[in-house]
Write a protein that binds this DNA or RNA. Sequence first.
RNA 1: GGGCUUAUAGCGCAGUUGGUUAGCGCGCUUCCUUGACAUGGAAGAGGUCACAGGUUCGAGUCCUGUUAGGCCCACCA
Length: 886
Amino acid sequence: MKDIPPRYNPKDHEESIYSKWENSGFFHAEPDFSKKPFTITIPPPNVTGILHMGHALNNTLQDILIRWKRMQGSASLWVPGTDHAGIATQNVVERNLHEKGITRQELGREKFVEEIWKWREKYGNTIIMQLKRLGASCDWKRTRFTMDKGLSEAVLEAFVQLYNKGLIYRGNYIINWCPRCRTALSDEEAPHQNVEGKLYYILYLFKESGEQRAESKEGVVVATTRPETMLGDVAVAVNPKDKRYKKLIGKKLILPLTEREMEIITDDFVDKKFGTGAVKVTPAHDSDDYDMAKRHNLEPVTIMGPDGRMNENAGRFSGLDRFEARKLIVAELEEKKLLIKIEKHDYAVGHCYRCHTVIEPYLSLQWFVRMKPLAEPAIEVVKRGKIKFHPKRWTKVYLNWMENIKDWCISRQIWWGHRLPVYYCQKCNAVIVSKVAPEKCQKCGSQDLKQDEDVLDTWFSSWLWPFSTLGWPEKTKDLRYFYPTAVLVTAPEILFFWVARMIMSGKEFIKEIPFSDVYIHGTVRDATGKKMSKSLGNIIDPLDIIDEFGADALRFSIIAITSAGQDVFLSKEKFEIGRNFANKIWNASRFVLMNVGASELQGTGALEKENLNIADKWILSRLNRTIEAVTKALKNYKFNEAESLVYDFFWHDFCDWYVEMVKPQIIGQSAESKERRTGEILIHVLESSLKLLHPFMPFVTEAIWQNIKERESIMIAAWPEADKHYIDKKIESDIEIVKNIIVNIRNIRSDMNIAYSKKLTVGLAPLRQGVGSVISDNAEYIKNLAHLDKLTIDENFIRPKSCLSAVAEEFNIFIPLEGVIDVAAEKARLTKKQDLLKQQIVFTEKKLKDKNFINNAPEEVVRAEHEKAEKIREQIDRLGKTIEDL
RNA sequence: GGGCUUAUAGCGCAGUUGGUUAGCGCGCUUCCUUGACAUGGAAGAGGUCACAGGUUCGAGUCCUGUUAGGCCCACCA
């Protein structure tokens, strides 16, 4: 017997266990056509990332599934990796350089990209290391990075394929532009956020009003939230049905602060009700205006540069930051009396998802993916149920987005990422799209070719992840075996960014869905409901929690408080749940190992039914029921339900009852007289429980598994199968009676302040057929657990004069305590019990007198209600008699 | 503006297809170091299930509305 300390200290085990696992090779999976594959590809964290609670939750969920399936005998593969996270990473490295006083422009593209690679070498594995501390059983040999050679190959292949199908095009459009990151963004990367803004009403004077005499008020008032963009106005539009402006259509206006002449045009797009019903048309800085200008053949005027500063078209405002320019322009308009009024106006404006800068709608030449044709099959597979979302409600969100999908802007004006496989002939302007750099122009033969400067959106590589990690575009064995993957586990934030696009790419490039189930878990928030973020300073660092409570505690706790798809509210104390439970498991095992002999450890399979007593049958019934329920819960992605089932079984059934019941049978007994059967059952139930717990708490279960005896990892032990012939309702209800008796006696002790040390003599009167034998079969258990020295069972029990009593459905309890009993107190106690029952009977009888109930409710419900009433009445009577007798 | 989601004990949450005495964890009260565990054990107290209607013999559970949170989407300048 090893010396096992009375406390589970995670630090003594986690590191060594993890390295043993890694060395064992059990994390690694190869195609094995004799087994079923079970594949998960990790949502690749950003290479700049450090582990936060969202990751902890996300990866714990995946590891639970992976470990569970591995134990079930699948070829369980969890592909790990990181995402190059174009903009985010470029920003980080740029900031580092900045601290050294270097800009990336000074460094130049090549050197700068080199710097990023160096940075990645140094810090890029941080999050991977952190995942290991969590216990993640990823196949690390297969760790991928979106900029790896193979994955980059996949990106080029995808681009070329789509281009050749006409699904990628280049064009001049208004896109979301981040002036700080100086790149285009997709719509998803520029989420709208509400801001408290202002609506400026500006007077545009008629040309014929001559010199800008505001006093005349002869002109049109337009309303805008972004007055600085007026410098790019090319017209004012009104709704053709708007009577107020009918006469003014075609009239010439002078753009204030400039000399520009413009016309009043009509367009159905204009909303009569908003503002003044007249809208300034700024095609280069607003996408609606751009469309409108196109309809009217108006040339856009760009007044801002990529840095968010006004350009030469802004005249004397040139060089000013856009918000500076706004202030100045507003001031000048006011001075000229052209600013009619300013209203408070809250509206939503796009913000860069990386740096939170206000997005500028910006006219520029970019590359796009035509999404509608890709979306169609991806809508189909979800509608037909080939891909299921858990919880279901996300299906609607997904479909709604997919059905309104817009083209995807994929070019980014940054340096870190996959460069577009696009080459321009400098001579004839031909565009060549090719995976490898062409030697000469296919059209004119010129060798003067230049590759496009832009890189692709990070998500253009992530959307290939489920198959690029398995070797695509090569037709690999891995791809054939492990694809499609089983389930995608993710947070709702990246449903559109990533999940939807993976479904599209899977259907497009492999012709097969990438996964059949999508499990979407909640967002991790702090105790007050705020999203955890560095800037809010409300982060709970998972590594701190692992240090303080252990990885198992972190894992168990976070799952325990996560109900399907609901957000998770965290505070440090919550991790005590898991820590305490790990300790409980540790100590229960310690008890078992301290009291079980070597022979039982071998497990001779003495679990034959005829060898079992009632307690054994009961715990095996509960065990098998639990196995069944836990497996079912996992199948349905009900993680917290699965967990609480094992928790309740292990702590309450096994520790609180079974172990307590059998204690005297094995403690202090000599090796020969020890009940061998009990020992084997203890081991069997313990081992089964460890297996059920292993996916949730891998470290402590492994540590104990090895304490029991040296052997291979619990990681590859077979997942328990429920053996239904152990499930026994009769035994379970018998044990309920036994527990009820014990609780009743303890109750009396507690109510009447009888010390535990005082052993009691108790008389039990069974009231129903069969109860007597249940009691006598379990007399020893009752005596031990209720701390009795004598237990008399007699149907015709004659109640001694002075005694404490309990009355239950199945039995009466008498505890004679001559001379000790406080009659008044006992009377009060019993009367209180009786009152409770009386309240119940009133309610039940009322129900039974209700004709509607009797006539309409199913027969069995009515009968059950009658039986219930009968039992309550009986108990009230018995209590009454008992009180009288006192 | 559209959609989703939440409201159950002081706090955090479960409550499967409508039928229990409405559960669990933390906290609280009382007792207990009884040979695994005080990160423990035993016994308790605490809820008119947000509000108002409706369906039903019966509603925490289904429907409608209201209120109050939260989230996502959206081109009203």
